[in-house]
Design a protein around this nucleic acid. Structure first.
Lengths: 232, 232
DNA sequence: GATTGACTCGTATAGCGTACGAGAGGATAA
DNA sequence: TTATCCTCTCGTACGCTATACGAGTCAATC
């Protein structure tokens, strides 16, 4: 009887013996594993987007049967969670010795966060399903520790962390969802001039036509950090 | 031959004559229309969530065949877009005569925005698919005009608008995705204490256990507005 | 009366997530 | 050596999905 593999947290799924690989056909795939499934899911998501990621197609890419995946992973939702957390994890930079000031540190980490997500645009649309994996937790911890070292009082720390998180997530999701608009930009332009009298302000400032996403992100982040800095 | 109804922007789908209803069976449904489809989709989404909203079930609720919907609506994606924009539209308050200061105005509008979305939690997870419907555009215009009247220079206006938008969207999406956590809270608590040594800061500040979402939202918004105000 | 256009919907196709249970194959116990 | 067990794979099947296609209904118009 195939008892579903338990989900105990510390479990290592590798074979006990772990001598040499079972050597199926030479040139065949390595054995399935949660890690390989997640890595391949990220590839598939990158290539085909959220809609193109099906368990069958994922299994195909892995050279396995669709149902084999379910031994390693509860369900499709779980695959999404794992892929998302993997993408969001912070790979600490080599830590060049000089200690930056806290603002630069925060900006660097948050810009990296945003960049990581934009490199995998599907991650933005997956985010709304909560997934507090180790990757996200690691980022939050790092952010909190920087701010704390910078002198933010514990009583204000949660507000500071969540404000920055909210800003980054909102900016990234917005940016990612506006990604594929090139022919749509013409339509937006047209619609905007049509609706100009109803929307004079955003037409005047060309809000929807501004392309400097990175600059706008950075400037808004500065505004937020100004507000935080003024609080101490 | 059933030529698909065109999507020209100004079109009014109603019957030309529009005398009295075709009087099918007494007590039967009113005729299909885009408006009725969207309204019912919102109901269905409220009741069953994103996963429970299928074209068949929507058609059932409307007392129609599934394929009938496609005369009024391009595809399921479009239904989502329309439902989202409907929920996000700003129903201007009765406008009590006294003109508030700009900060209160901004806060009021943004809190209403957030509340509108949290009333329909699925809207947060739908947001990442861009949908620049009239509802969202109306909000953006209003926000821009308030800020402009408050003295924000045109050169800074886009950054201000996007910063606030980003913050609200991030906060709302985060909040909505953490919604259903009651038994999970125990798990989070446990995991947090287990991982306490790896995440000392967020454990100390009880980041994940803080329940005062509304207060945190408001405080963070104040931080951001402080930053904006200090810029003039 | 004939024609047209707006609208409804039955049927069918291709795909989906995943429950179920059989079975392969190595490890262990007898 | 044989029997048992555990881990892992996967073929089949079920119920569901979005939607393409085309036939059919009915009111308005010519």
């Amino acid at each position: 009887m195939a008892a579903k593999r338990s989900d105990a947290p510390g479990r290592k799924p590798r074979r006990a013996g772990a001598k040499l690989e079972p050597t199926k056909q030479p040139g065949s795939e390595p054995p399935l594993s949660r890690e390989r499934i997640v890595a391949t899911a990220v590839e598939l998501l990158d290539a085909e987007g959220v809609g193109g990621m099906s368990m069958r197609r994922l299994a195909d890419r892995l050279g396995a049967g669709a149902m084999s995946l379910y031994w390693h992973v509860d369900n499709k939702e779980k695959v999404f969670d794992l892929a998302l957390d993997q993408v969001l994890a912070y790979r600490e930079p080599p830590q060049t010795g000089e200690p930056r000031n806290w603002r630069d540190e925060v900006v660097h980490m948050l810009e990296d966060w945003r960049k990581s997500m934009l490199r995998h645009p599907w991650s933005a649309s997956l985010l709304p399903r909560r997934a507090l994996g180790p990757g996200i937790l690691g980022r939050l911890e790092l952010l909190g520790s920087i701010l704390s070292r910078a002198g933010v009082a514990d009583a204000d720390l949660n507000v500071a962390i969540w404000s920055l998180w909210n800003y980054v997530m909102g900016a990234t999701i917005t940016r990612a969802s506006f990604e594929l608009t090139d022919d749509e930009k013409a339509a937006a332009q047209q619609r905007l001039s049509t609706l100009g009298e109803r929307h004079p302000t955003i037409q005047r400032t060309r809000l929807l036509l501004d392309n400097d996403w990175d600059g706008t992100f950075r400037k808004g982040l500065d505004v937020l950090l100004d507000g935080l800095a003024g609080r101490q």
